[in-house]
Design a binder for these strands. Sequence first.
DNA 1: GCGACAG
DNA 2: ATCTTGTCGC
Length: 225
Amino acid sequence: MTTFRTPADAAEAHAIQDTLRARVVLDEPGPPPGTGRATGVDVAYDEERDVVVAAAVVLDAATLDVVAETTAVGRVTFPYIPGLLAFREIPTVLTALEALPVDPGLVVCDGYGRAHPRRFGLASHLGVLTGLPVIGVAKNPFTFTYEQPGPRRGDSSPLLDRDEEVGRALRTQDGIKPVYVSVGHRTGLDNACAHTLLLARDFRQPETTRRADALCRQALREATA
DNA sequence: GCGACAG
DNA sequence: ATCTTGTCGC
């Protein structure tokens, strides 16, 4: 597992992304959807107290039952800069992932992977550092463009950077605004969408992110109280 | 130069 | 991300 280093500034962060990008694996299909485990990771902040809490929640991919969960507390070491989100979230997320007593299976993060200005978003970065299959499911289209997908659950359309497909806008519930799926590491886009759809069985967002989000917020309250 | 911009 | 009550709707 590669060591994480917090960059001194944006220029150094860009350089790190440009270097690590070469290690992304894009030619593996990834774990079969609906089997094994899927792990959601998310982070909550208390900017005032300079505290960050990460959560990792492992689900059975078939039943969506919780198999294991961990949290980790850290300090904010990098500001939020669009395109550099990973440097803010990854350190504490790594700690939470390492504390898991079981193999995470497919890791699902809140944000982007290949859909990124330098093709190296949070999901790509986390994948390269851990070696795990990782995908990104974001709630906003960031700077990318897309045609509105069909109205039904499962409908999708290409997420574009110029004319390059960097991800997909995927409708996970009938008549509800889509989520934005992109590949991180060791997973194909079709598979990433299939996983997302199965994980978003009951809600717009995948159950993995919902559980991780709830857990890190709760842990932040407790760490802050 | 100004605005937009994952979380 | 986070600040934040009630309220409209299934």
